[in-house]
Write a protein that binds this DNA or RNA. Structure first.
Length: 561
DNA sequence: GCCGTTTTCGGCCCGACTGTTTTCAGTCG
């Protein structure tokens, strides 16, 4: 079995971390971290790439391409084995401690023989760290706190959690404040909360200090706090300089680095306060991000695209794609009613669709099959269709009669073809046997795609953020099958699913596959999750033409033979 | 280690804050 991209990325990351602890050239360290990141986000299995393909990836050159091939062939590489012999492996996790970096780890290891987190804790408790040159009692306390924090650290937040936390913070800030960071970029999961504000620093620091569990650092220009086990960074700015600050704090980091390089090539220096002309030291400030982009000779890059995945080149050429907008969405393509495991009646769903400004909603209750409560068999599906016709007589938002059928472990569906054929549109999804090996799961999904009655593959990887990992899958083969069978792939907008991931959405779009946003609503407030799906589609570079949701109901129904 | 319409060698984004310092190194985003 070939190594997965994730496995190769982890090894490259380990080499980078060990080099860093060894005190290697920081740029060499960064090269490994960047290469690991690139491999991790490839849509194709790295095992299918030639030497040439590898070296064509930005940030991967001759040396690292060679190491990747060595890793693919042997499961490791000579450089890694050399580093592992020279460096205790327990040191790597010390790098994850807040306030502990490579220089600190190296000193603790060389001077105190610390080889892991337990040894570090013992050294701190025995007050041996404060004796080191350049260290003190405060640093020792900081390390103990960092160890405690790391042991109870939660994973990344889903978007709904992150939005709630951001709202709490913004409500406490005495002035105007805006969300930045990965939350603003529309990412599926959020590590920390970033906020830009024009509120007065002194007063705001006091307010945030009161509500925070701990203050990481605090000054006239920023405050960083821990709240509910999460980190929040707040940066202060003025209305006149807000553009550069919002740009900086929105990131991504890779995007910022590229932008600053571009400024450098124009003879300018870009920071979070504005642009400085190198020769004259003249300072330019910007009230909006658009003005910063204009000064750099670029089209404004939407936050969802700011990942250094080709958008910068497009913006310099003035050829950024027109991205999907919420206003272009005509309907929700995945909603459950009280007929299966939802709570809303069909009439309530139609009313909610009207309130959302939708032309239609695709009702997709679970089909009877594996143990989902109240799944519909062919007979109840027919009864539901009759009731949908009744509701549609008076509703301005049309209900489409769909179903969410299970893809059984062998790739067959949980409803007979005749029952599927009677539906307006059919979603097919995996709800069982999540642990099949990659090849079996891939063939299972492709079998479902090849069923002529299936219109949409629901939540393709079946992941639940924080609860269940994505199924093993050769996503490139699934995308290829979706293209060949002209089946849509779902963008599931539930904040715990966010499935597909943005890189695969983009891969699918580029292969000509249509995407379908569904909220997977079971309760009324979940209709609002559509915005997460739109953000995800935008992160996948989708325009209105790439989505089923932007088509009229009549056009959708034409998909049926 | 990567990379190049100013370079195949010499750069590699830029600034805030803290702790242990008498001017700065380390960490972080």
């Amino acid at each position: 079995m070939a190594m997965s991209n994730r496995q190769v990325a982890l090894i490259l990351g380990e080499i980078g971390a060990l080099l860093e602890i060894q005190g290697e050239n920081p740029f060499r360290v960064r090269a490994y971290a960047r290469a690991a990141d690139q491999i991790d986000r490839l849509a194709h299995p790295v095992s299918t790439l030639s030497r040439e393909d590898l070296e064509a990836i930005p940030g991967i050159g001759e040396a690292i391409a060679g190491k990747i091939q060595e890793i693919m062939n042997t499961g490791t590489c000579a450089e890694l084995e050399r580093l592992r012999t020279a460096t205790p492996s327990g040191l790597i996790q010390l790098l994850d401690l807040t306030g502990v970096g490579p220089k600190t780890v190296r000193k603790l290891w060389m001077d105190l023989g610390v080889d892991g987190i337990d040894a570090l804790e013992a050294a701190a408790r025995n007050r041996r760290i404060r004796a080191l040159k350049g260290f003190g009692a405060k640093k020792e306390g900081e390390i103990l706190r960092a160890i405690a924090e790391a042991r109870q650290r939660a994973g990344r937040m889903n978007r709904a959690e992150a939005e709630r936390l951001a709202s709490t913070l913004i409500a406490a800030i005495p002035g105007e404040a805006w969300v930045a960071g990965s939350l603003r970029r529309g990412r599926s999961t959020i590590g920390d909360i970033d906020i830009v504000t024009t509120a007065p620093p002194g007063e705001t620091n006091l307010a945030l200090r009161r509500m925070a569990d701990a203050v990481i650092d605090e000054g006239e220009r920023k405050i960083s706090v821990m709240i509910g086990g999460r980190r929040a960074d707040i940066r202060y700015t003025t209305p006149g300089e807000c553009g550069a600050m919002l740009l900086y704090l929105t990131g991504s980091q890779a995007f910022n680095i590229r932008l600053r390089e571009i400024a450098g090539r124009c003879g300018m220096r870009l920071n979070e306060y504005g642009l400085t002309v190198r020769d004259s030291s003249a300072r330019l400030v910007f009230a909006t991000e658009e003005e910063v982009f204009a000064a750099l000779g670029m089209s404004p890059v939407p936050p969802e695209l700011r990942e250094d995945r080709g958008e910068i080149e497009k913006a310099l050429e003035g050829h950024l794609p027109a991205l999907l907008t919420r206003e272009e969405i005509r309907g929700d393509l995945h909603v459950h009613s009280e007929w299966s495991d939802g709570v809303l009646s069909l009439r309530e769903i139609a009313a909610e669709g009207e309130r959302m400004g939708y032309e239609y909603i695709l009702v997709t209750d679970h089909a009877a099959g594996i143990g989902i409560a109240h799944g519909l068999d062919a007979e109840r599906l027919e009864k539901q269709r009759q009731e949908i016709r009744v509701v549609n007589r008076t509703a301005s938002c049309t209900l489409l009669a769909g179903v969410e059928a299970d893809i059984l472990p062998d790739g067959r569906l949980s409803l007979p073809d005749a029952a599927l054929e009677a539906c307006d549109l059919v979603i097919a999804s995996v709800h069982s046997a999540f642990r099949q090996d990659g090849d079996t799961m891939t063939r299972r999904l492709i079998a479902a795609l090849e069923n002529e009655h299936v219109d949409i593959l629901g939540h393709p990887t079946a992941r639940l953020i924080g609860h269940r990992p994505p199924v093993a899958l050769d996503i490139a083969r699934v995308i290829e099958a979706a293209a060949e069978t002209e089946t849509a792939l779902e963008i599931n907008a539930s904040p715990v699913r966010m499935d597909l991931d943005d890189i695969y959405i983009r891969q699918a779009k580029e292969r000509g596959v249509t995407l379908a946003i569904g909220t997977d609503t079971h309760h009324r407030p979940e209709f609002a999750h559509m915005r997460y799906g739109v953000a995800l589609a935008r992160r996948g570079w989708c325009g209105s033409g790439d989505l089923l949701n932007t088509r009229t109901a009549d056009t959708l129904l034409e998909r049926r033979p």
